[in-house]
């Protein structure tokens, strides 16, 4: 267990921009190693230091390739960028192939860029339970933008909207007709809709369908009309415009007062994640074979036992 002094020292090194310290801190908070709560607590004060941008979209829509292009653009504009890329953990083996890095190696030697791959480890909704703490580490390390690439889970992947300031939904041509665009889910959370693979001939139809569907939506919080950005991660066309849309959204958040309400929503979400994690872990730690015996003999019910265990009794 690291001492309070260790935690302070590591946090101070991260705040000085030490990349090795940031890598180490990320491991401690995301793997919930001993001392992770103290460390995550130390970084919490950096919440809100960076503009956080989430990218979501179905598998293969080109999120990683687009992140790669966006980072090039952001760097040219003088920004520094931290990237968290989430890929799925196997429910069967606990293993994971974290493949987002492959699209990103052009930036691996740039000191203004830091990328970390994360596995979902059983969390549904496209994000990892410890995502907030990971974001705070990168905020503390001084990156002006933090990009969070969610696992490509599809229609129901809306958690990211409560984690970041700006949500970019990535889609591509040939992903369905206008009725797909009318469904609830990710279509409701996008601040910017990137239609990737704009080098394909069907892109105009995809943009038109998206426009149609979004025109029926009520205006987003604070009067923001979601932007639609056709973009090609393959050729780089449209990346500058996409970056401009993302920055326009950030400016809108500040001028409309929406930033404060989004940040409050993030705080509520972070607190709820910490609570559910702790309650679950603490209650599960009290479960013994005796409880299962009680259930098998029908002498108690999961509901009744659950109440007892949650109340801290055995």
């Amino acid at each position: 267990m690291p001492s309070a002094k260790d935690v302070r020292e590591l946090a101070a090194r991260v705040r000085r921009g030490d990349r090795a310290a940031a890598a180490r801190a990320l491991s401690i908070v995301t793997e919930e190693r001993p001392g992770h709560e103290a460390l995550a607590g130390a970084f919490f004060s950096d919440h809100g230091a960076s503009h956080t941008v989430g990218l979501c979209g179905s598998p293969g829509s080109g999120k990683s390739s687009l992140v790669n292009r966006l980072v090039t653009r952001l760097r040219a504009a003088g920004e520094t960028v931290g990237v968290l890329a989430v890929d799925p953990t196997s429910a069967f083996t606990g293993g994971a192939f974290l493949g987002d890095r492959m699209r990103f190696q052009a930036h691996s030697l740039d000191d203004g860029v830091f990328m970390r791959s994360l596995a979902t480890r059983g969390m549904m909704g496209g994000l990892n339970a410890t995502i907030f703490a990971a974001i705070h580490v990168l905020e503390a390390c001084g990156f002006s933008k933090v990009l969070v690439e969610t696992v490509g889970t599809g229609q129901d992947e809306v958690d990211v909207a409560e984690v970041v300031d700006t949500v970019v939904c990535v889609s591509a041509p040939y992903q369905g007709d206008e009725f797909q665009a009318m469904k609830a889910g990710t279509m409701e959370i996008g601040d910017v809709f990137a239609v990737n693979k704009a080098d394909l001939p069907e892109v105009e139809r995809a943009v038109a369908m998206l426009k149609d569907a979004l025109s029926l939506n009520p205006l987003h919080d604070g009067g923001w009309a979601p932007r639609i950005a056709p973009v090609s991660a393959l050729t780089g066309k449209g990346v500058a415009e996409l970056a401009a849309d993302i920055d326009a959204h950030r400016a809108h958040l500040a001028s409309s007062g929406e930033l404060e309400s989004r940040r409050r929503r993030q705080l509520r979400r972070e607190l709820s994640l910490v609570l559910s994690r702790r309650l679950y872990r603490d209650a599960m730690a009290r479960v013994t074979d005796r409880h299962i015996d009680l259930l098998a003999a029908k002498k108690s019910s999961p509901q009744s036992l659950g109440g007892t265990l949650l109340a801290g009794r055995k």
Binding site: G95, F97, Q105, L109
Partner: peptide
């Protein structure tokens, strides 16, 4: 094979310099 054995595996892709690999190892811890 490592994924199926329960490891978290990061792959760099082809044509990496030793510098890129060392830096990636640092960032990914």
């Amino acid at each position: 094979a490592l994924r199926d054995a329960g490891f978290e595996v990061i792959y760099t892709g082809i044509r990496q310099t030793p510098e890129m690999i060392a830096r990636t190892a640092l960032q990914e811890d």
